[in-house]
């Protein structure tokens, strides 16, 4: 059984709707959550964590299971297994880090106040300074110290790395690798730093935005996703030789044009002229997202 199962999650916020989001997450895996701004990544994470309910609107619905616990029927057990580090600081800005550990740690089984204090010291967060006076990076660090102070099964990280300095970012990713190394828990990390996400994530969940709806554009391993795409850099005059159905997006530059092609290995082998096949390369995740979401100049 997967550690986290999300079945047909539907959530409406304002006029925007997440529709039929389905994915699973095994223990020991890191799931990267990607998508353009406003596609519903934070909405999805909040629904998984429990900030958003799945019943206020008639169109809302879905089921979530964490470690076999149902999100509504076994609410307490479900939530106590989740730890989070969020871009929007979730604690009161009038409390200091020590008070947060003291006040909220009580509700999480196995919360270790001494460990919390030690982590705050390790991450150089002044524990007696009110949160409103902490920098964005310090707020992320204090949340991380809280999250690592109790034995959660699922760690949800919403845009955590953007405000961290380069040195701590490296240590942060190392913490994530350590978390999943024992295969007891899993991590969902949402980030716009797609290049870094590519290094750490085992699987990807790509939420695509179409009008007022967000749906799953892709769910699977990072390698499988890269395998679907190729980037071709050629002279614009040679565009005619590329089958239209392969082209997902293009970008025209001064000296050449770049084309993102989508298909299987067989498609590339059979449909492209032999002369062009040697010019194919695997695109980065960033390039895939750019061409697919923007469409290039298509």
């Amino acid at each position: 059984m997967a550690l986290l199962e999300c079945r047909k999650l539907n959530k409406k916020i304002g006029t925007y709707r997440l529709k039929d989001i389905d994915f699973t997450l095994e223990a020991g895996m890191v799931l990267g959550l990607i998508g353009v701004n406003g596609c519903g990544k934070t909405t999805l994470l909040r629904s998984v964590m429990g900030s958003y309910r799945l019943d206020p609107d008639p169109e809302d619905g879905g089921e979530l299971f964490l470690n076999g616990k149902h999100f509504a029927k076994e609410e307490k057990a479900y939530r106590s297994a989740i730890a989070y580090v969020l871009e929007n600081y979730p604690f009161s800005l009038n409390m200091n880090a020590r008070e947060i550990g003291d006040r909220y740690g009580y509700y999480y089984p196995g919360f270790d106040l001494k460990k919390n204090k030690a982590l705050l010291e390790k991450y150089e967060v002044p524990e007696k300074m009110v949160a409103s006076r902490l920098s964005k990076g310090q707020k992320i660090r204090s949340q991380l110290a809280f999250a690592l102070s109790y034995p959660a099964k699922l760690y949800i990280l919403d845009e955590p790395a953007g405000n961290l300095d380069v040195e701590f970012r490296d240590a942060f990713y190392q913490e994530i690798r350590t978390l999943v190394a024992d295969e007891e828990c899993a991590v969902i990390i949402s980030s716009h730093l797609v290049t870094e996400l590519e290094q750490i994530a085992d699987e990807l969940l790509w939420i695509g935005r179409a009008g007022d709806e967000g749906t799953v554009r892709y769910f699977g391993s990072v390698d499988d996703m890269r395998d679907r795409y190729r980037l071709l850099s050629i002279d614009s005059k040679e565009e005619a030789s590329i089958p239209d159905k392969l082209i997902t997006g293009k970008r025209i530059r001064e000296t050449h044009s770049e084309y993102l092609l989508q298909g299987t290995k067989e498609d590339f082998g059979q449909m492209l002229p032999v002369g062009l096949q040697g010019s194919l390369r695997y695109p980065s995740l960033q390039e895939i997202m750019y061409y697919t979401e923007k469409g290039g100049e298509r």
Binding site: G50, E75, Y78, R79, I82, P90, F91, S92, Y107
Partner: peptide
């Protein structure tokens, strides 16, 4: 309201009744 307005309050592992 001062005590209950943060997101962390909504994430606490408590049943709705609690």
């Amino acid at each position: 309201g001062f005590y209950f307005s943060s997101e962390a309050e909504y994430l606490l592992p408590l049943t709705e009744k609690e």
